[in-house]
Amino acid sequence: MTENLLNELEPTPTDAPKRGIGMGGIVLLVGVVAVAAVFGLALIDRNAGQPTSGPAPDFTLTTLDGQDVRLSDLRGQVVVINFWASWCVPCRDEAPALQAVWERYRDRGVVLLGVAWTDTERNARAFIDEFSQNYPNGLDLGTRIGELYGITGVPETFVIDQQGQVVGFYPIALQQDQLAAVIESVLAGGGGT
């Protein structure tokens, strides 16, 4: 736009009425197309939403015990990723169910990963102690994992099969039998519901 003001300030030669599209015009058009392209791509990116099927984005979670857990290292096991936060009320309802599911399936090739999203370390530890959770749980530093999975709120749960494919996505607080049913079905090779 500024480019154009500059161009306009230049006197137009009276003897050359047809100049073809000049430099200013080209720069302007290219600029507008570029701006439009950026916003178009951004919109597509935004609307892409959450990875509810296909390969699960890989990440490394540093647990509160200081261990690094890499999602791709868990290939061959069913992985349940639960995003939660200590300030979230439904997460409190869900916490005992998750611990129960963990206790029931931990020896059957199922890993439960807790990802504390936008939480403070102090509050997250207090929450884990309160519900005596002992599955791998870590903070999502810089909300990078949350961004990979397009988190819009908590709790949100993803179920990933033995091949590393997302087979279930639940943006709600899960009941124990609900989650158990999903895991059973994935273990049986039937995928999520």
């Binding site: 200590s86 300030w87 009320v89 102090r122």
Partner: peptide
Amino acid sequence: PTEACIQWREEIRI
């Protein structure tokens, strides 16, 4: 005013 923000302010205080 949300609950989460009250916790974060508490974290700042600590």
